[in-house]
Design a protein around this nucleic acid. Sequence first.
RNA 1: GUGGGUGUAGCUCAGUGGUAGAGCGCCGGACUGUGGCUCCGGAAGUCGCGGGUUCGAACCCCGUCAUCCACCCCA
Length: 466
Amino acid sequence: MASQQTRPARGMRDFLPEDVRRRDYVIGVVAAVYQRYGFEPLETPALENIETLTGKYGEEGNKLIFKVLRRGEHESSGETDLALRYDLTVPLARVVAEYRGKLPRFFKRYQIQAVWRADRPARGRFREFYQCDVDAIGSKSMVVEAELCAAVSDVLLALGFAAFDIKVNHRAVLTGLLSATGIPLPFHGTALVAIDKLDKIGRDGVRRELVERGIGEPAADAALDIFKDGVTIEQVRGALTGRVEALAGLDDVRQIFELSQATAAGAHLRFDPSLARGLSYYTGAIMEIAVADLPGSLGGGGRYDGLIGMFSGEDVPACGFSLGLERILVVMAERGMFPADVQKPSADVLVALFDEQTVTGALRLAGELRAAGLRVEVYPEPDKLGKQMKYAAGKGIPFAAILGGDEIAAGQVTIKNLGTGEQVTLDRAAAASHVLERRAPSARLRASGASARQAESRAPSPGEEP
RNA sequence: GUGGGUGUAGCUCAGUGGUAGAGCGCCGGACUGUGGCUCCGGAAGUCGCGGGUUCGAACCCCGUCAUCCACCCCA
């Protein structure tokens, strides 16, 4: 087996036609919804100067940046001066800093491109993967957060997801609460890691882990008191008495909930004071999408009012949301959520090659059918007809056109329906319309999987997935 | 980065020290202008790679790479 050499590099993937169709379908839905909200497309280079990326993602993120050796003077020294983009937010911040004057006052952009992380691959996790980002630049209003939540909700609903939560928290609330429990600032990160496991290892498990990590028992108990399932904004407000910044953050959260009542996101928001998010550039509200059968998240986002200022010196408020395309695809594939026509065959008609003498005629026929709007593949060799039929059936092509000596002499063509086995010999001029009239139903010849509508109607109850 | 599982035909896997197997797929034929069903025949693997133990290794040992799962972290 030569498979060792032909496999793509670790964590990278080839996308075969079926994969690309599924990806294009999801990307198409995402882009269409984002456009409906007035977001404009943006693309940025795969490579950034390394200093653009370093120091933006926190300690963990810095390690995972894919560094690239530029050819030339640094080749021998091994010094890296370029890096593959780690996310789409930092490149956006750079773009805004560079073109601020040319962009609208409230720049709303979406961007669907690959990002790279030098991470260890796992289920739903790759070294090269796509993110679908929407961001709104220039406003501090919580209307921005509410619209972003609404947009991603609309995307998920359009794809057939019904049961999902958008967890909402705020950086200032988080630090305020941790400080209120008596956990010193340097321990905030490690404490959150433990608290985050509440649903996995339970209260006792978290308490044990907190203490193991050097947090005192009183603080651990206080933390467990606040960070529990179903805690309300009002309850948290009580714990934050006197902490001005945290209370302001909590009011942001309250506003997001209120505003979202008017949108598709309203039914899906859930306040989660333990939500942290790894990226260090977030300054305000933070969000994350959770679905029942995926351990990680489907996407996340938040407000980063200081990031653009790291490039331009002038702080510009900004907030964004990122959907993980690969995660969405993993869940959709497992639940059979793709509509049937995503898997439609590559052509409507296969023009068979009868023998060497009829090749030109076959090519001419293919041209006529294409001109009539059909997708037509010409079988490239005059194999036995049986083999050609088998090939067409194997590819799911619903019709075969046969042009032998008899047909040519009579100015006719034989059209065979591979689905029903019926075949008719008719005038060439009538061939295209014959197929067009029968194309729609037979296009689903090989279709499998549930449609988006069907998936939605049976998705709501978590835990019952196949 | 840590721990565990798995690497045998294109695919899914069986084979626990004595000459390498099945199902599916593929190719050919029965069916020389027609796929699906059936039957007959065929091709195909230096058993992930390297070393070791043994008269003899797919099998045991060591290493290495790949892959999967859990942890960590994340989209």
